[in-house]
Amino acid sequence: MPVRRGHVAPQNTFLDTIIRKFEGQSRKFIIANARVENCAVIYCNDGFCELCGYSRAEVMQRPCTCDFLHGPRTQRRAAAQIAQALLGAEERKVEIAFYRKDGSCFLCLVDVVPVKNEDGAVIMFILNFEVVMEKDMVGSPAHDTNHRGPPTSWLAPGRAKTFRLKLPALLALTARESSVRSGGAGGAGAPGAVVVDVDLTPAAPSSESLALDEVTAMDNHVAGLGPAEERRALVGPGSPPRSAPGQLPSPRAHSLNPDASGSSCSLARTRSRESCASVRRASSADDIEAMRAGVLPPPPRHASTGAMHPLRSGLLNSTSDSDLVRYRTISKIPQITLNFVDLKGDPFLASPTSDREIIAPKIKERTHNVTEKVTQVLSLGADVLPEYKLQAPRIHRWTILHYSPFKAVWDWLILLLVIYTAVFTPYSAAFLLKETEEGPPATECGYACQPLAVVDLIVDIMFIVDILINFRTTYVNANEEVVSHPGRIAVHYFKGWFLIDMVAAIPFDLLI
């Protein structure tokens, strides 16, 4: 008679799926529990143990900040960024110097990925580790590398530091407007667009060049630039800015003055950032001319202004700041037409079709709590990747769950009947059967004279019903998954307890 339990259901295979997918890609990662103190490590794979030199037993239950890997060259700011990422709910990448158990130093890129439950609360953290440099290539500990984003994938490793954006290309926007319009339909740009040429040739750093990471940081200074100062900065030398009595002219307006920039070969870094931020506020060169004239017309309804409409929906549905990093990277690809469009465009503009998908598509409701890094690593669709929660398995109709209350009560009843059979069957065979043979035949009273025979008949009927119930009862397979398919249940029961239950259900007393 089957006594099969499996009270692990309803099970959740999400954690096993993450481990299996990460292991298949030869990654070095740990999984931490966000619900406990210090976000203790609950799993670390073999790749991480080989990377740091510690065994799994030495890593388990330690804080996922990996303070046991810190050393003299470990930056405090990087460690603080990892700790801050564990307090938030967004994906974050941090470069930090770690030390192995043998004392060797290596520069590592740590990717902190939160995993949320159905309520939107962070319950786990996945920390992925990628070695960037070994100890002989690690720089000085005073050099802070965590304020910069990861290198873009479309640049060669040897040319990542030679990417320079020439400031004269930004200063000569109005001069290039006529050349853009003359391109017409034969050019790649839309009317009114501004073409910015980027020099990728390796050259020595000069005062006129600005690194790509500095251009990325310009967006942080746009908020500090007032509207009046932006307007004066875009007017140009024809209309000098008016300053109040006793007030000095704005240095932001002076930063885009061609006369002032041409007199000296070098520009201050602050002026460069502010000038680029001011130019980015204009949607095209037409807006710059309109600002000089004193009238700013409404933005025209053409394809170039609607190019950012799908980007707005993608940004609203993005799951991490990696989408913004990807957008900034692609927006700086050289030799393309940049349409400086305000994100607050007309909502009635139709979304044009684009061959290049900048932001990841909208994630469906079932995966809105899973970050983009987890979705990318697992390579699963929205119909396959579940949320991290207890999910009731989908069972067929008329199927009994093996952990249901009805099955528990039924098993206790069958257990009592088995005990009765084990006690009274030998007793009936030894004593009652002998008395029946010696006594007179009682054929007239039937079952009324033999109450134990009636009980034995009921017990046999219950055993037959138990066999039928076992054909529709779920079970737990070797992978700790609840199986509810009727065919698989029948095959599993035939290979197991079916023969024993059938022999126990045969009414031998009635056959004798």
Rank of each mutant, 00 (worst) to 15 (best):
P334I: 01
L107V: 15
Y327H: 06
V295Y: 15
Q376W: 01
Q61F: 10
S243W: 04
G139V: 13
G294T: 12
N220P: 13
V122T: 12
G24A: 08
P151H: 12
V94T: 14
L311S: 08
R164D: 13
P334R: 07
V138L: 14
D259G: 07
A277P: 07
C276D: 14
R4G: 13
N38I: 01
A193H: 01
I330S: 07
S239Y: 07
R159K: 14
A83R: 09
N146Y: 15
Q247K: 06
D219H: 11
R292G: 14
L170H: 15
G24L: 08
P168D: 15
L127E: 01
S320I: 14
S239W: 04
G381L: 04
L378K: 04
P202A: 06
G314A: 12
M137T: 15
S26A: 14
V370C: 10
N339A: 05
Y43C: 01
D144M: 07
A223N: 13
V110Y: 01
R159F: 12
S261M: 10
T329Y: 08
A193K: 05
S104C: 12
V41I: 13
V215P: 06
F68Y: 04
T201N: 06
P2E: 04
R159Y: 11
Q84A: 13
V112K: 01
L311C: 05
D111H: 14
D213I: 03
K101I: 01
R62H: 14
R301Y: 09
A217I: 10
F98I: 05
S261G: 11
T152L: 06
S178G: 08
V132E: 07
L15F: 06
D199K: 01
R92L: 07
P298H: 03
G238D: 15
P249R: 08
A282G: 10
A172Y: 01
R356D: 07
S104M: 06
V325T: 14
S182R: 14
E58D: 05
A190R: 06
N146D: 03
R326Y: 08
S331D: 15
S354L: 05
S55T: 07
F22A: 13
A32Y: 01
V94D: 01
A32T: 03
A193C: 15
F340E: 15
K101N: 01
S322M: 07
N369L: 09
L267D: 12
N257T: 14
H302F: 11
A303E: 11
V198P: 01
Y327N: 12
A260H: 15
S255D: 05
L343A: 11
I42E: 01
P298A: 06
S104Y: 03
L155E: 09
Q61G: 14
S284G: 11
G192F: 01
V3S: 14
A193Q: 06
R35K: 06
T17H: 08
D67K: 05
L225F: 04
L267G: 11
D111K: 08
A268S: 08
G294P: 14
G189L: 15
L51W: 04
M308H: 05
A204S: 04
L248H: 06
A142H: 05
V112R: 01
F106V: 05
G246E: 15
K362V: 12
P157E: 06
L173P: 15
L155R: 12
Y327S: 12
I336G: 15
K332I: 01
K344G: 14
R27M: 09
F48C: 01
I330K: 13
N128P: 01
S278P: 14
I82C: 01
A79C: 08
D67Y: 03
P72M: 03
H368D: 05
V195C: 03
R20V: 05
L173K: 15
T65D: 05
A78D: 12
A360L: 12
E37F: 10
M218D: 03
L127F: 03
P361F: 05
A293H: 07
G71I: 01
I18S: 01
L267C: 13
V198Y: 05
A85Q: 01
T367E: 09
R4E: 13
V295D: 12
L212F: 06
V195R: 06
R92E: 15
E214P: 06
E372I: 04
D197M: 01
P63V: 03
V122D: 06
S140A: 10
M137E: 13
P157K: 15
R301F: 01
I126F: 07
L200T: 15
L51A: 03
R76T: 08
T329L: 08
V377D: 03
G226N: 15
I123K: 10
V41Y: 01
D67V: 07
N12K: 12
T371D: 04
G183L: 09
D111A: 06
G189V: 05
G184W: 13
